[in-house]
């Protein structure tokens, strides 16, 4: 990620829930486990997290329920004030921002889709979606027009005058998505945004966000429980446990080289061949390239399965999108990944 400008930078962030977290933190030695902290009457929502998110990157956060995903994202947007540590957004320390600066930041740069939607119960679909635009001071006509566009996009045309309680769960979620799409923020926090959607519309929405991210280089932090979704979207995946990030890396690395036993267990059931790309598995060229037809670096091992089984060569050349050779793929190693003995 070194080629990307850092947008969100989080350094040693802690978020403790309890009566007097600051005081408690000062009394901590630093080696307390999650359970030690809980016995003292505090919950460690975020535990010593350091992570950077670059411009145009999609960071997917995964982890079991209660592992602190939503809390971390709330810290990024300063819906929670962190107990200690620093979080900067585009170089500005958000913890030090005044209320006015924070409002300006949120109005101009940030958007969020909430896990349980957070729709305003007294506003219609249209008015809910136009709400952030209203706060930005856009005039009535423009925001109505924009809201209608995104209503169309999320497939809620004809329901714009409904109230949230008149909609199904999935429809409500789409209103939440539309509300954040309407402002197309530079920095996007999506907390399980598609959890209530049917597979078809979910795929459409994923495509839409991918399109926006690639075209307009949006920075997205995305929470999901669905590994397939994570694979489709993620540049990097962060796996959380008890408030801490266990590992934050590309999907390939997470399945190939799990950093902790927990991550290994977490990724155990995933078919690695669907995750690992030829480019990642290959070794450097070191001068001599094997001959013959190269395989694409961006192809997953699964996509190459037929070729790997039928090809007789020991090593296969790997080429990037432009056709230039970038490495050598050991067929046996790839087969191991494919068959699951790696």
């Amino acid at each position: 990620m070194s080629d990307r400008e850092t947008v969100i930078s989080c350094r040693n962030a802690w978020k403790l829930f309890g009566d007097n977290p600051k005081k408690f933190f000062a009394s901590m030695s630093g080696s307390e486990s999650f359970d030690d902290i809980r016995r003292a009457g505090y919950i460690a929502g975020v535990r010593d997290v350091s992570v950077d998110v670059g411009r145009g990157e999609m960071l997917v956060i995964m982890g079991l329920s209660g592992s602190g995903k939503s809390t971390l994202v709330r810290c990024f947007s300063r819906l929670h004030d962190i107990t200690t540590g620093t979080i900067t957004v585009e170089g500005d320390d958000i913890g030090a921002m005044s209320e006015r600066e924070l409002i300006a930041l949120r109005r101009s740069k940030m958007g969020m889709v909430f896990q349980s939607f957070g729709l305003l119960p007294h506003r219609t679909v249209l008015d809910n979606i136009a709400f952030p635009l209203e706060m930005r001071g856009q005039d009535r006509h423009d925001r109505r027009k924009r809201a209608m566009e995104v209503i169309e996009l999320v497939g809620l045309s004809g329901r714009e005058d409904y109230f949230p309680r008149e909609l199904s769960g999935g429809q409500q979620q789409r209103v939440g998505i539309a509300r954040s799409l309407a402002i197309e923020p530079d920095i996007w926090f999506l907390d399980e945004p598609f959890s209530a959607l049917d597979p078809l519309i979910r795929r459409e929405m994923q495509d839409e966000f991918l399109r926006l991210q690639q075209m307009l280089s949006k920075t997205i932090v995305f929470i999901t429980h669905d590994f397939d979704e994570a694979l489709r979207l993620a540049d990097r995946i962060a796996i959380m446990k008890d408030g801490a990030i266990e590992q934050c890396d590309t999907p390939d690395q997470i399945v190939l080289n799990p950093a902790t036993p927990y991550v290994r267990k977490f990724t155990e059931d995933i078919e690695k061949s669907r995750v690992v790309h030829a480019g990642v598995l290959s070794r450097p060229l070191n001068g001599a390239a094997p001959e013959g037809e190269p395989v694409q670096a961006s192809a997953t091992i699964q996509q190459l399965a037929r070729q790997l089984v039928n090809d007789a060569r020991e090593d296969l050349p790997v080429a990037d999108a432009d056709g230039a050779l970038v490495g050598v793929l050991n067929r046996q190693q790839a087969l191991d990944v494919l068959l699951g003995d790696a």
Binding site: L79, M112, S116, G118, L120, P121
Partner: peptide, 29 residues
């Protein structure tokens, strides 16, 4: 008033006054 509704208001960049008149009071109807 549900905390997520409040957070949605904050993320939309409501000022305190907007928060009160457009989020809290209507939601506490």
């Amino acid at each position: 008033v549900s905390p997520e509704v409040v957070e949605a208001g904050k993320m939309a960049g409501c000022t305190r006054w907007q928060m009160l008149t457009r989020v809290y009071l209507p939601a506490a109807r």
